[in-house]
Simulated scan of single mutants.
Amino acid sequence: MTDCLIVGGGIIGMLTARELSAAGMDVTLLEQSRIGRESSWAGGGIISPLYPWRYTNSVNDLAAWSQQSYPSLSEELKEASGIDPEYTISGLLIIDPEDIDKAVDWSFNRKQNLKLIDGSDLTSYEQTLKIDAKQGIWMPDVAQVRNPRLTQSLYKAINDKVQIHQHCKVDELIVENRQVKGVETDKQRFEADRVVICAGAWSRTLLQSLATPPTIEPVLGQMIIFKHQPERITRITLHQDRYVIPRRDGRVLVGSTLEHRGFEKTTTEAAKQELKTYALNHFPELAHAEIEHHWAGLRPGSPKGIPYIGELPEISGLYVNAGHFRNGVVLGPASCRLLADIVLERPPVLPSQPYSLDAKRF
């Protein structure tokens, strides 16, 4: 018997485990494959929603809390694990956005640092960028983490505090008299009066036979990464819903597609070539760089990208922290702190109602 079971070992699951363990709970985490190898590994690691003014206040509130916490979180994880998540303030350069007035209003209302720039000045911010543009937005405070390193760092930091079972697939949630009692896995039965579903795109599948499930569906994203030279590309660049993210060691990540193909997680040559063409159209010098890897991940899509955070109304002790869509990294610290507050019945860091299972998402 454990105090709390967490189903799902991505960034959301591990951060939730970290929060609850720090509060003194005995926590067991179950992951159906390898820790942190699904959407947590596959994403870009930008510590901001893309075009944040297009999201609801509920998403931006989570993002703002997380953005404030990331510098200290990254240092704590680095110290605890010896693995640097590579928190880096790169700045975000947005090319020819369609809704500049909305962006300006958002930055004023939320006190965010945002500057409008003329298209001819883009190379002042990123010298190797070669694209004709009318105008741009510069957000100097936007940071990134290298999400594979973040997941590895999280795993090492919690491994001696949380019982972790990898390759342990949950087959069934055990519920008696509308109270959760644990889970049945392909290996053994685990008992607990609190269970948190942090299974990303798989969360709905786990819950659909028990209660009104959250509206979460898999959305495939494909990405490529170039092996390039350090400090040749230094800014995160966003244009036409595609992004280019430079890492400290010179690698340059380019993404991402949005595909609805169910749980199929395969890459395609067409997507690889489309992403490569996009990258070379913006940064021609990448023509001399090797494409080191091409991969895909399944995001947990949800209405308006608003995650579900809270207890299921129908079943006592059964909680969800899932549905972060493209923003699991940036929303993760706030989401997991809020979920821990709900489980532990502490005053919440943010109002919890917008993320509840029965909240309207608009």
Results as ranks from 00 to 15, higher is better:
111 K>W: 11
37 R>E: 06
354 P>S: 14
194 R>H: 12
276 K>V: 03
86 E>L: 14
174 I>Y: 09
110 R>P: 01
149 R>D: 03
50 L>Y: 08
225 I>W: 03
7 V>Q: 04
287 A>C: 10
198 C>F: 08
205 T>Y: 14
158 I>Y: 08
51 Y>P: 04
245 I>P: 00
243 Y>P: 02
152 Q>Y: 09
58 S>Y: 10
28 T>F: 10
142 V>W: 03
214 P>D: 07
24 G>Y: 15
11 I>H: 01
40 S>Y: 05
60 N>R: 12
88 T>Y: 09
146 R>W: 07
270 A>F: 11
225 I>K: 03
190 F>K: 05
286 L>A: 05
120 S>A: 15
41 W>Y: 08
195 V>F: 10
231 E>Q: 14
37 R>Q: 09
299 R>V: 00
100 I>D: 04
92 L>P: 00
52 P>A: 11
277 T>G: 01
2 T>H: 11
275 L>T: 02
320 V>W: 03
51 Y>V: 14
195 V>S: 07
256 S>G: 14
290 E>T: 12
262 G>I: 05
355 Y>L: 06
114 L>G: 05
268 T>N: 01
170 V>T: 05
174 I>M: 15
57 N>F: 13
88 T>A: 10
185 T>A: 04
94 I>C: 02
286 L>M: 09
43 G>C: 11
26 D>T: 11
104 V>P: 02
258 L>S: 02
297 G>L: 00
197 I>Y: 01
184 E>Y: 10
219 V>H: 05
189 R>W: 10
209 S>C: 11
162 V>L: 03
6 I>P: 01
139 M>G: 01
254 V>L: 04
318 L>C: 06
353 Q>R: 15
361 R>E: 02
290 E>C: 08
302 S>Y: 02
339 L>P: 01
331 L>S: 05
111 K>Q: 13
63 A>C: 11
264 E>H: 08
259 E>R: 05
320 V>P: 01
342 I>D: 00
328 G>I: 01
298 L>T: 00
217 E>H: 12
341 D>N: 13
235 R>K: 14
160 D>V: 10
66 S>G: 03
180 V>A: 02
68 Q>A: 12
37 R>P: 01
154 L>P: 00
156 K>T: 05
91 G>K: 08
300 P>A: 04
13 G>E: 09
259 E>S: 02
25 M>R: 15
1 M>D: 12
337 R>N: 06
231 E>Y: 11
257 T>R: 04
205 T>P: 08
134 K>A: 13
127 Q>T: 13
109 N>G: 07
70 Y>W: 15
121 D>V: 11
66 S>N: 03
359 A>F: 11
298 L>N: 00
86 E>P: 05
253 L>T: 04
242 R>K: 15
224 I>H: 01
